[in-house]
Design a protein around this nucleic acid. Structure first.
Lengths: 144, 144
DNA sequence: ATAAAGCCTACTTAAATAATAGGAAAACAG
DNA sequence: CTGTTTTCCTATTATTTAAGTAGGCTTTAT
């Protein structure tokens, strides 16, 4: 019941790009340095985000990555689902395919549905804009 | 971000015992048959629940397991934490030990805290009594 | 032309998951 | 007191997932 590094790093990576105000494409190399995460691993993660259209890449020298939308248009849920896959707490809730035989008999399913709803309520409400705001608050407090 | 079979089976196992009204100890063998789960695997799971005091065992012939408390005194959270370990979505929230260097700088932590709270709100509120009630509702509907 | 970027695919290592297996110990029934 | 039924304990195994590493290819600004 843990979010993996892929999801966690993806969130930090997106936040890192969002906090860049240069207007220039942001390089993996720089993100990796700031976030203290392996470049090669970040490459793989951002590749998924790129294919999903959450970022846009610019190749070649002076290249890097840019966001494709306004920061308040990204939810944490979007970013996590792209990198983690489904956030449902049990696979019974995932595939309408491969469904469990006991579904119609299984009271625990109702618990999982409640849990799933609670999780979605959080991750689909928090946006990248929120994370940026929190980050700036924390930076302020850190300085004082 | 999935609950493992241990946690899921533990919940079904506890519910199975709770639904037994004979007053007699409930045997692993019977639970395994009803729930269609391997006896040997259930043994391991119930052993954890036993050591945590969530059930009481009676050894030897005519033995089995009994609940130690009223059904409304068990929350899903109790059962899941005993079998799954922490339900926190990231380990940053677990150990006051082994804490991440970036904690004071990391805005994502706030998201994880919100998510953790949302998860706890569900699992610590739903009791075994609730699950029993749901199960009986489902059984009714199934008959019709 | 060259250096600096991203792109792509394969590989590796370690840990966790999900069981299986086999026998020891306890307790009741006859 | 013997046999059967049940829990208890520990070890082993197979599979999958997580978390990276590695290396070469392609694109593009200068």
């Amino acid at each position: 019941m843990k979010i993996s590094t892929k999801g966690r790093y993806a969130l930090r990576l997106m936040l890192d790009i969002a906090l860049d105000h240069s207007g220039e494409p942001v390089r993996i190399k720089d993100i990796a340095a700031r976030q203290e995460i392996s470049e090669k691993y970040l490459e793989q993660i951002i590749s998924v985000l790129n294919k999903a259209g959450l970022v846009r890449s610019i190749r070649g020298s002076q290249g890097g990555y840019l966001l494709t939308k306004e920061v308040d248009k990204y939810t944490a849920g979007m970013i996590l689902r792209v990198t983690e896959g489904s956030l449902a707490p049990v696979s019974c809730l995932d595939d309408e395919v491969n469904t469990c035989e006991r579904q119609s008999l299984c009271a625990t399913l109702r618990l999982w549905q409640m849990l799933n709803t609670a999780i979605c309520d959080v991750v689909d409400k928090v946006t990248l804009a929120d994370l940026m705001e929190w980050q700036m608050q924390m930076a302020d407090n850190y300085v004082i």
